[in-house]
Structures are given as C-alpha cells and as structure tokens.
Design a protein around this nucleic acid. Sequence first.
DNA 1: AGTGTTATTGCAACCGATCTCAGCAACCGA
DNA 2: TCGGTTGCTGAGATCGGTTGCAATAACACT
Lengths: 331, 331
Amino acid sequence: MPDLSIDVVAKAAGVHRSTVSRAFSRPEAVKSETREHILRVAEGLGYTMSPLAQALRRKTSNIIPLIVPDITNPFFAELAKTMTQAADERGYQLMLCVTNGDPAKSDGYFTAMQAMYAPFGIVAPSTKVDTEALKRFAFGHKVVVIDRVEGDDSVPTVTVDSRKGIMLALDHLHSLGHTSIGYVSGIAGTHTAQDRMDAYLELTAQSGSRPVVLDSGSDLDAGTRGAEHFLEMDNPPTAIIAANDMVAFAVISALGRSGLRVPDDVSVIGFDGLALGARFNPPLTTVRQPIADMGHIAIELAEKQNGDGSVDHIVLEPELLVRGSTSELRK
Amino acid sequence: MPDLSIDVVAKAAGVHRSTVSRAFSRPEAVKSETREHILRVAEGLGYTMSPLAQALRRKTSNIIPLIVPDITNPFFAELAKTMTQAADERGYQLMLCVTNGDPAKSDGYFTAMQAMYAPFGIVAPSTKVDTEALKRFAFGHKVVVIDRVEGDDSVPTVTVDSRKGIMLALDHLHSLGHTSIGYVSGIAGTHTAQDRMDAYLELTAQSGSRPVVLDSGSDLDAGTRGAEHFLEMDNPPTAIIAANDMVAFAVISALGRSGLRVPDDVSVIGFDGLALGARFNPPLTTVRQPIADMGHIAIELAEKQNGDGSVDHIVLEPELLVRGSTSELRK
DNA sequence: AGTGTTATTGCAACCGATCTCAGCAACCGA
DNA sequence: TCGGTTGCTGAGATCGGTTGCAATAACACT
C-alpha cells in the first residue's frame, strides 16, 4: 500500500489537491464530471481520507466518547451497543471510556477527548452529574447526559420517566393482589436513582401502604443486603421492587440461597428490561427502558445541539414487561 | 482556552518548537534545566500535546481498536473492561468496535483503524478468524487474537486451555457421582468453541461414557434448545456442561420454566466465570477463565510484537469455581 | 462588443506536532 | 593551539488534509 495521500490521487486524476478534497467533502462545489472522475480514480486506488488529518485541520473529529462507569453492567453494555450502532450509522467512532465511578478518570477522558476534537460526548453517569465539571471541560464541546441534571438546563438529557416506571411496577403488583411491597435501591447515586426511590416512597404513601426500603445502598451488593434484611423481617412484604435488573438478580439469587422461591414465595420486579432478564431463573418481570431509543436519541440530541444550538430534554416512556418473577398473591 | 499549540508554549518558554517537542517526547535529548523550565511553563498554561497531530506525523497513534462481536455478552464486556484498564495504564485509548458477527463490519473497522494509525488491534472473534483477511488489512498493523488461529503462527494469540477446562468440569461432576453428562454448545463458531466441544467428546469417550450433545448450535438460543432436548429424552443425563456461562444461564432458565430445579434435579456447570454467575439463581458453578489476565496479556503481546517482532501464543490455565449449580448425585 | 455574474479550479497558508540536519559552544587529548 | 567529539538547540520540511482567495472560463444581459 504505497502510502495513499490526497496528492497521489490528485496526480492520478490530473487535478489539484484541493479539488480532490472538495470532491469528497463538499461535492456540490465540484463539477459533477470532475467529481465522478476523481471518485473513480480514488476508488481504483483504494483511497480513503485520513480522519486524523481532517480532524487536525477542521478541528472536529468523528470520535465520540461514551463515558460509562462500568461496561460490565449490562445496562451500560446495551447502551454501548446501540450507541455504537447509532454512531457508525452516522460515521462516528465510539470511544469507550470506563470510569469505574472515579471522577478523576472522567476528567481525564474529557481532556483527552477535547484534544481529539470530539464533536461531543455522551455521559452515562455513575453519580450525580456535576455540571460545573462538565462545563470546565466541555468547552465548546457538547455533552449529552443520560440522566436528569440538577438545576441546569443547558445540557441536553435523555431519561425515562422514573415515576411512571415505578407506577407501572406498583400497579402490576397491586393487580396481583400485593399490598405490602418492598424496595431495594442499588444504582449509584444518580438523579435517576433518586427519582425512582422518591417515586416509590411517594406512590406507596399515596396508596395508603407503608413503604419498606430494604436497602438503599448504591453498590452491587444492595440486592444481597436487601434480601438479608428481608429474611430477618417479622412481617416481610410479599413483593419487592428492585431499582434495576442487576439488583433484582442479586435479590432473587440471595433469596434462593435461603430457600425462598420467586415468584412462589415472593414476587420480584426489576427495572431496566435487560435482555439477560429473559434468561434468568425465573425470567424477570421488569419495567423496560427503551435503551435502544436512548442511544439513538442521545446522538440525535448531540447533533441537534451542535447544529442549531438547541438543548432538549427528552423523557421516554417505560413499559411493563411481564415475565415470570411475579405472580398472584396467595395466602 | 486560547488555542494551545506547541508554538505558544515555545514562545512562552523562550525556546523553539522543536525543543518543546523534545522536552515532552524525548526528555533525555534536552538539557534538564531547559526541560524542567519548559515543562513548568506548559503546566502553567495547561498545555497537553495534540494526540492527533502527533499521530499524523509519527504515523502511529494511541488508539487501539477492540473488535468484539457483541458487547452485550458479559464475557466481552468483562474483556472490554480489563482491556480499557490495561490500555489506559499504558496511555492508549480503546476504541470499541462491535461487529454483530458481520465480517464486513470488521473489515470496515480495520481500514478505519489503519487510517487512524492504530499501533495494533485486539480481536475477540465471533467466528473462526480468517488470517487472510487479517493480513489484508493488518498491514504493518499488528493484531492479537483472543482465540486459537488455524494454521498460521504469525499472529499472536491468547487463549485458555479448553481441554483442561472441560477436564476440570468433568472431574468435578464425576467426583459428585455423575456419570451421564450432557453438553450444550453455544458460542459462535470459534476455534475455542470447537476445542471445547472436541475436548468434551474425547474426554467423555475416554472415561467410557457416552457423549450426549444436547445442542451444538452457536447462538444464544442453544441453551433453550438444549434444555428442550433434555426434557424430551427418555434417559437424560444427570448433569450438563454448558460451553459458556450465558448458555448455562439459558439452560437453567429453560429448565426452571419446566419445573426442573438446579442443582436438585440436574447439575449444570458453565464455562467463563462471569461475575454475573455469582448472582445467578442458583449461583453458577463454572470453569473460570482468567479474563483480566487475558486483557492485559493481549496488550502486552501486542506491544511485544511491535517491539521486537516476536509472536507468542499464550495459553492460560482455567480454574474450577464451585458455586451452587452442581451437587452430589442422589438416586 | 462590453461588463457583470456565476461556476470551477488552482494556489498557498495553515492545523499541531516530529525529525533530520546543521550550527554552535564547551570539552578533550596531543 | 587545533582538529575532533559531544551536547544542546534552532531551522525548516513534512505528515495529509482544508479553505479563503485569486484566476479563469462560461454565460447572461444591454
């Protein structure tokens, strides 16, 4: 592959560098005849433009960072999946940045991305998003956040309606006859996590029952602890809402280890709608977040903001996914 | 942020561009006094070098592609996790490339990465690796593969000893009294998948029992089908080895839906050692692959090859992880 | 025919580094 | 004292494109 630069194509096509450049990046500025000739020649040579050189000059690249706390968490994995797809549908390359919840790391990623002229970035927060920090780096660079952001409307966001989701779960459980319904938190301290918890507290109170928070931790062991707590109770709830699917898995697993069966002894419902849930034992009933949509929309929002500067806050509707981990209350 | 280029630092420090450049990338070539002064000035300005400009000139970047078929599969997610870590420990940025098993896509990624001057790439195959295709693109660029490669020693690989793994599983099951042990395949058609299956067939025969392949498909539904097949058998095995954890999950889930309990009715053992397995219901007994090591080693191999051109084939040892999905045979 | 547009293309500076070469000062041994 | 090293720094070309500006050609209109 004799180094293929724009100049060799230019020479081969008998035109100037700049014309070749335009043929590729501003087709309407080149006589169609010439353009086609150039493209044909380039094709024949197997030439493609160097994204690096382009980025250097244009000061904007096609690399977009996706910042997640933990790719091992299937929620973020599914997000990453749809985002890579959405990204390369539009010619972007997704750069995976895993912070492990360390804000210092995400700072590092931001500067790196700035240096790479990323046109924007997507942040799936592990902790409440600090808009100040964002601003400090985002600098010209735009960011869209997959979470609610407190007191700052200047950053586009996409979320799902937490309250609605919890309501769906609660209604489903009520319709099965459950009245005593526990809650296990478990995602990191994001606004979304907060919102779900608040919604649970509020809606439970509204329906006249007593809220039972089995665990309000924010790590992966919340599920295990929640289950332990449950097992120690004198009068445990008959159903449990888990703040997310991973926690639900942990709850069911821990319960199972103590001989409790789901849904026979307790009903458990998750929140996320992970594909994995369908192959859990039992298949997990859950509130589905439209993750695929979130990914696409996040990128759209970013592009939109880049274009006309508009800042949107999209709130998606969750959906109940009834599988096998909840059942009619029998007494 | 008044655009920070090497020239402004040079001016501010009262030296020439090239000296600043050297101060950063070839420290020993600059009088330590000067160097420290430059570094101080740069620090004060908040200057960092543009990786893009560097890559353009040096013809080698710090971007390294990780090509996986599906990031949603926890195995690849865990791999990605350790690799991002290993990568940025050494100053690389991981570019996530998801092929969905489409070879055309991975071709695309290869050319893209070539254009980005990636120093090398990591391929976690979804299908038997085609060395020819690799060569066509790898071009100067080096690739290390997380799978065995057929008939070509020129590409570094890291794998775990499939035979040993299957042996571990078999021995464990035997020690629990099982003699009739089924097998469900299920990972895509990689050499590794093939190796596991072959090992099962061979070792089973050696021990004088009859191999029972419940399903040899290579998709995610293999587990479900395997379970169905199992349920239809007149004289089903008392234990099942799943080619990987995801399949094991599916098997257990499907069995559960038909009222069969694991490990009470059947023992099931997986292969992978996913963190998720610990929170499955029941916690999954499995053969652990040292995924974290694989990630680090993959990068080391790549760097090593880049350095002295050596090509290694590392085979790691798997390890038995006894949790709750296998138990003593009782008749 | 003369003048004003508009469509195309070439020129050359520029993006932010790297790297070879050359210059210069200090140092060494004879 | 002089040729020969060695250590450090500056010059300037270069990597592969982009883009504002100038030049030319083609076409329209009076």
